[in-house]
Design a protein around this nucleic acid. Sequence first.
DNA 1: GAGCCGTGGGC
DNA 2: TGCCCAAGGCT
Length: 346
Amino acid sequence: MTPSASDLLDWYARQRRVLPWRALPGQVADPYAVWLSEIMLQQTTVVTVMPYFERFLKRYPTVDALASAPLQDVLASWAGLGYYSRARNLHACAVLVSDRGGFPDTVAGLQALPGIGAYTARAIASIAFGVPVVPVDGNVERVTARLHAFETPLPAGRRALDQLASMLNDDPAAQAAPSDFTQALFDLGAGICTPRRPSCLMCPWRVSCRAHAGGEPARFPVKAPRKARPERHGVVFVLEDATGAIWLRHRPEQGLLGGMTELPGTSWQDRPVALSDAFSESPAEVTWKVAGQVKHVFTHFTLNLTVVRGAVENFRMLHNQPGFACPPHAIADQALPSVMRKCLAL
DNA sequence: GAGCCGTGGGC
DNA sequence: TGCCCAAGGCT
């Protein structure tokens, strides 16, 4: 049985979430707010995004304001949200959009912009510009896989699943309300058709759902087994001067934590680094004292850092080292990723 | 297609 | 505790 778009839209009219980036019923969505929220929400929960979104909108009220801001300010505002290439692409995209006088209103036009892929282009196009397309994110993937009791494991089955998801839009009622239909799918996935224990009895589509009929809805989508996560080890140095300032440095523009600020440290190895070896890479020849261990889980490896601290009278002796002195009151404004804030917290 | 790219929370 | 998950994109 084909799911009815009207049933979903009726449910959405009653149950829709109120979110800061979402237009109220009858209002027109702001493309800037929609775009900003979509970038932040990539692989990131609504609860995490909320305070960042509010802060960004206050600090950069328009896409022009964001385009005019220094990249380093944007990175500092983004610090803690993760996936920092998003922030770099966000800024680059703002510059392009500001130059052309506004966001493109087509899927192709949007997808040509940095940081906007197939999903985000369709999300912005449908939500902000009323283009009748179905963005396939984790929510839509899960809902669709359950509707069809789709057995092919992901990611191998993704193309076929995308095809099935796009068919949700065959219903004229869906095409008549692209913005609401997309957001209704999100709310359904987030609130009803949840990953672990879906609330099928409250679902407007349960009569059409083959996974519900089969009695094991949580089994879908089927996923291929994951690879093990390797471990890496390193030592970081917290070097303080007599005024309490800390010695920091910038990471390379590309790669992990690209463009962010960090504590100086050793390279990261597959095995624990002996302190005697680490000291040869330290920024200064002082007496180092172990402050503690920090364990931090990245997407594709676990990092174990030994944090050591030392003191110098001043940083004059470091004049030819890469890095800069950061007074205590300026730490909060640095583009320090969470892993580095953990180290400093010791 | 597969690997890289963060972080915090839930169970 | 370890694993999974969250409105993915880029190479």
